[in-house]
């Protein structure tokens, strides 16, 4: 029986629609200082991330640098421990997994990083890189090599590429190789951290289409972490917008691009340069820059740059407003409406 069919059988076992549930996730990185390396402060990377990811959907986590989106990804991959909050995977608390269960989790959850060059060992052939992962997770044996070839074809490469070193591949090919490595353990959930940021436009489209077709065929669930809103629109089903470590808006992607409610989301959308001359819809330029992450957010994280700021925004954290069943926003403006 081929690896493909086993994977499908596994997928249909559970009826629950929600695969990943993230509740109030927080991560503070301590800043150590002085002779005794005591904690003198914190980088408040993530304050509150809350969202669900359904089976076989693509959730985009959007934000600018320092918004905490990558840290959320690392916590989901169990590469960082949350300071507070919980992650549930198939209704199991990821923070309370035993070591054998962690192994189970790591097999189902894979991560693809932005820079494929940095995440491949320069001294290992692609073949060895992929087979090592299969051996560690005890999948695909004993015919590791056959499976590696099958994976290469699946991501649009060929057997010949298995005998290359990372530096002998182009950027797009490297990203495909990293993807093949992630797929070799039959994962269910793949965290894609800026998967196309290092690629040229003509190659980016190839990789995006590959991700889409793999999802159609194998029902992978994706968390797409990116700052590129065009990519978000192209491949995601739902979007969560983060600012200074706090989620500010969550909505189906289509709806978000049509009617963004949060002033930050609106500004973000209007800042994207559109490749069409004279498309110049009046730009909503934001003033200032996101402040220092060593200062803790007290009220609304966006208050100091918001064009519609009101006194209440600097006093209290805005509550969650339901625009409809699937669209939530955290902003005092929508509360007032």
């Amino acid at each position: 029986m081929g690896a493909v069919s086993t994977m499908r059988a596994e997928k249909t076992e559970t009826g629950d629609d929600v695969l990943v549930r993230v509740e109030g996730l927080r991560k503070w990185f301590p800043i150590l200082g002085g002779v005794f390396q005591r904690t003198v402060g914190y980088i408040y990377a993530v304050e509150d991330a809350t969202f669900n990811i359904k089976n076989a959907e693509t959730l985009a986590l959007v934000g600018e640098s320092g918004s905490g989106k990558t840290t959320v990804g690392l916590m989901l991959a169990k590469l960082e421990h949350p300071t507070a909050g919980k992650i549930f995977y198939r209704n199991r608390d990821v923070g309370k997994l035993s070591s054998s269960e962690t192994r189970w989790y790591r097999k189902r959850v894979q991560m693809v990083f932005q820079d494929p060059y940095a995440s491949l060992n320069p001294r290992m052939l692609i073949k060895d890189t992929i087979i090592e992962v299969m051996k560690v997770h005890r999948v695909g044996g004993p015919n590791y090599y056959d499976r590696a070839v099958e994976l290469m074809t699946r991501v649009g490469l060929s057997e010949e590429h298995l005998y290359r070193y990372p530096h002998e591949l182009s950027g797009g090919q490297r990203q495909r190789a990293v993807l093949a490595r992630a797929l070799c353990v039959n994962p269910e959930f793949i965290i894609l951290d800026e998967p196309t940021a290092s690629l040229d436009v003509s190659v980016q489209a190839q990789v995006l289409d590959l991700l889409k077709s793999l999802q159609d065929e194998f029902r992978y669930t994706y968390l797409l972490i990116t700052h590129n809103l065009a990519v978000v629109r192209y491949i995601s089903d739902r979007t969560v917008v983060m600012y200074r470590g706090i989620w500010v808006e969550s909505s189906p992607t289509r709806e978000l691009f049509g009617r963004a409610e949060h002033p930050y989301t609106q500004a973000l959308l209007s800042s994207v340069p559109i490749p069409e001359p004279r498309s110049n819809v009046e730009k909503q330029l934001l003033k200032g820059e996101p402040p220092n992450p060593t200062e803790r957010v007290k009220a609304c994280p966006f208050a100091d740059r918001c064009p519609y700021v009101m006194p209440v925004c600097n006093e209290k954290t805005p509550p969650v407003t339901q625009i409809n069943d699937s669209h939530q926003v955290r902003c005092w403006l929508t509360v007032k409406k």
Binding site: S202, L208, D209, L229
Partner: peptide
């Protein structure tokens, strides 16, 4: 080029 302002089918250029 994927677009942030509209839904478009993206077509890649083959090869590199």
């Amino acid at each position: 080029l994927p677009r942030a302002d509209k839904d478009l089918k993206v077509e890649s250029i083959g090869g590199s």
